[in-house]
Design a protein around this nucleic acid. Structure first.
Length: 596
RNA sequence: GGUUCCGUAGCUCAGUUGGAUAGAGCAACAGCCUUCUAAGCUGUGGGUCGCGCGUUCGAGCCGCGCCGGAAUCACCA
């Protein structure tokens, strides 16, 4: 497959050089012509005026004439101000169409030889996943899939935060108030059960603080000395000493949470190649502290704590080792980064983590490069904004979080009600109805979240997310289902088309040419999405393609077309559109139904 | 206060390395189901791209300064 833009660029450079002599080819700018003008590609002539010493119009005119003479594929050109719009002939596009029909993996790029790790999800094991995690998981999964499509070897990693005071809080509350309740005995999903006791802890903690303050104790001291928090801290110490009782409770309750997470991950359709557990990695990074001290990058204070001074870089002092010799979050992350680059020979390491940790990653990269690791530049923090609700921000303490499992269930059941109302499920088996509802409900949720630029704080309006009209996942799924239906009918009526599309000369209508152009763009959309780590680019592409096809579909009778060659071409075009929609949606983790 | 990010139609969002008359969807209004799925299609209205200055042939995009919002700046993770 030729790269069309490069092809045009080359012809334009040839033309310009023939007219004005040798030039730097980067001054010849080729871009796609905007929709409202006639043409496929546009040459911006302003940068060439110094060479031509003529008006923009005259320059564009003579370049256009020259390109036309040395490029038979060109159908024509027009000049508007300093813009030379070039139109390629239908024959040229028909050839491109033929090429993409033969290429079943259209849009996927050849192996790059690069290895990339994408870390995402990284939950705490003291409560269930919420809406913020959903954005994280969908982003991480989709970015990983997009990178795969770009030919990279991708390792999806999950670093589970399975230790710390927060876990002990749940454990303690369960011991005190749980009465031996288990997921099996209560019928609750494991992560929800553990989360329930985390909330329970907080309730008692708050009560105790209030009581202490009523007895005249200061707020700070009350927070520090409330019996229940003291007990939790004691439990953490016992965990660190691997006290058998605490340790086995910890294993049991984490096991419940993992079962619960597993179900949520499966429902969301995300997966991982490599699991890390913080209980196994939290001691990493101490050797780097020694290294940094030797290099004079870090300094040790009188109390034994180790610091790095980043004030010269506009940042602050950062602690790397406590006075008692234990490490902090940053130290662990330095260690795990090193471990990963060594273990997997990575070219890139991408962390999908919320923007509240921008500072952390800025510091992480800076420290690694100060330690002399060249790969520090190959760490990317894929930072995403918060998900806000219409009523205001979600806060877990205020109980305004949207639970991931609840949300998924609600989306699926709404999809079902909606389908039923529209009569889409008539004559469907129960299994088929459930399957379509699941795909559509999840498709709506995923698309709604992924179409937004990750960096932006986004508003999640449950009402709007459940709307299946317009720029939504279900609209794209619907287009796919319709095309599949046309193709099924063609097969049933014995209409042959496969392999016939390019068998003879056919006339194209403008919608067909538009579709071919949009299809021809798919590989570059995948490449751009890969460079920018942006599922939103794929979402926009898929929507444009689906919208274009829907317009086409309405204006043309495909199966009723009498001329076999034209009918075959239209069916092949439809088949390819469905294949590309399906492929693009797969990069977003969205399934496409055959019927809906 | 320091650092980073955001500000585009009433609402939710696009807008590729600076290019032409800034685009979709929702909401509103007017049409279109006897023809392959109406979760659809066609049309209308809706904008000082937060404000100002600068860079240049050209700025929503780049630079500087304001205004408004968010995150962060722990011996938490």
């Amino acid at each position: 497959m030729v790269n069309i833009e490069q092809f045009i660029q080359q012809k334009a450079v040839e033309a310009v050089e023939a007219l004005y002599g040798a030039i730097d080819s980067s001054t010849v700018q080729i871009q796609k012509t905007r929709k409202e003008f006639e043409g496929d590609y546009t040459l911006v002539v302003f940068p060439l005026l110094k060479l031509s010493r003529k008006s923009p119009e005259a320059t564009a005119g003579e370049i256009g004439e020259r390109i036309a003479s040395l490029c038979p594929e060109l159908k024509g050109y027009n000049v508007i101000k300093g813009f030379l719009n070039l139109s390629l002939g239908d024959g040229f596009w028909a050839e491109r169409f033929g090429e993409m029909l033969r290429d079943e993996s259209w849009g996927h790029h050849n192996a790059s030889g690069k290895s990339i790790m994408v870390e995402y999800s990284s939950p705490n094991t003291n409560k269930p996943l919420h809406l913020g995690h959903i954005r994280n998981n969908l982003l991480g999964y989709s970015v990983a899939e997009i990178l795969k499509a770009n030919g990279h070897r991708v390792i999806k990693a999950n670093l589970v935060n399975d230790r710390g005071i927060h876990i002990c809080k749940s454990m303690l509350a369960w011991k005190m108030f749980g009465g031996g309740e288990t997921p099996a005995s209560s019928g609750m999903k494991g992560d929800h059960l553990v989360g329930k006791y985390y909330v329970e802890f907080d309730k008692h903690y708050k009560t105790q603080i209030k009581e202490l303050m009523a007895a005249g104790v200061g707020e700070e001291e009350a927070k520090r000395t409330a019996p229940i928090i003291v007990a939790a801290q004691e439990m953490l110490l016992r965990w660190e000493m691997k006290d058998p009782e605490v340790y086995s409770l910890w294993e049991t309750m984490n096991g419940w949470v993992y079962d619960g997470f597993e179900k949520t991950y499966r429902a969301m359709g995300v997966d991982f190649d490599k699991m890390y557990y913080e209980s196994q990695t939290y001691l990493l990074g101490k050797s780097l502290v020694d290294k940094g001290l030797q290099q004079g990058v870090f300094t040790r204070r009188d109390d034994g704590s180790v610091w790095i001074d980043l004030t010269g870089d506009g940042l602050d002092q950062k602690l790397l080792l406590r006075g008692d010799g234990t490490s902090v979050y940053m130290t662990q992350d330095l260690g795990t980064a090193l471990q990963r680059f060594e273990e997997f020979d990575l070219d890139e390491l991408i962390y999908v983590v919320g923007n509240e940790q921008n500072y952390h990653f800025q510091v992480l990269k800076l420290i690694l490069s100060k330690l002399g690791y060249r790969w520090a530049d190959h760490i990317t923090h894929l930072s995403y904004g918060m998900v806000e609700l219409p009523e205001g921000k979600m806060k877990s303490r205020e109980g305004t979080v949207v639970d991931a499992d609840d949300l998924i269930d609600e989306m699926v059941s709404t999809a079902r009600d909606m389908s039923q109302e529209l009569g889409k499920l008539d004559g469907c088996s129960e299994d088929a109805a459930a399957e379509v509802s699941r795909m559509v409900g999840l498709g709506a949720l995923k698309y709604f979240i992924l179409k937004v630029d990750p960096r932006k704080t986004m508003l999640f309006d449950p009402r709007e997310s459940i709307d299946f009209n317009g720029n939504t996942g279900p609209f794209i799924q619907y287009t796919h289902a319709r095309i599949r239906s046309v193709l099924r009918k063609a097969t049933v009526s014995g209409i042959a088309f496969e392999g016939m599309a390019t068998s003879g000369p056919v006339e194209y209508v403008s919608e067909e040419i538009s579709l071919i152009k949009q299809l021809a763009d798919y590989p570059s959309a995948v490449a751009v999405a890969g460079e920018n780590f942006s599922p939103a680019i794929i979402a926009a592409y898929a929507y444009d393609l689906a919208k274009m096809y829907n317009g086409y579909y309405h204006d043309h009778s495909i199966l009723r077309e009498e001329r076999p060659a034209v009918r075959a071409m239209r069916l092949e075009l439809s088949r390819k559109v469905a294949a590309v929609i399906s492929s693009a949606m797969k990069l977003l983790g969205i399934e496409v139904p055959e019927k809906m």
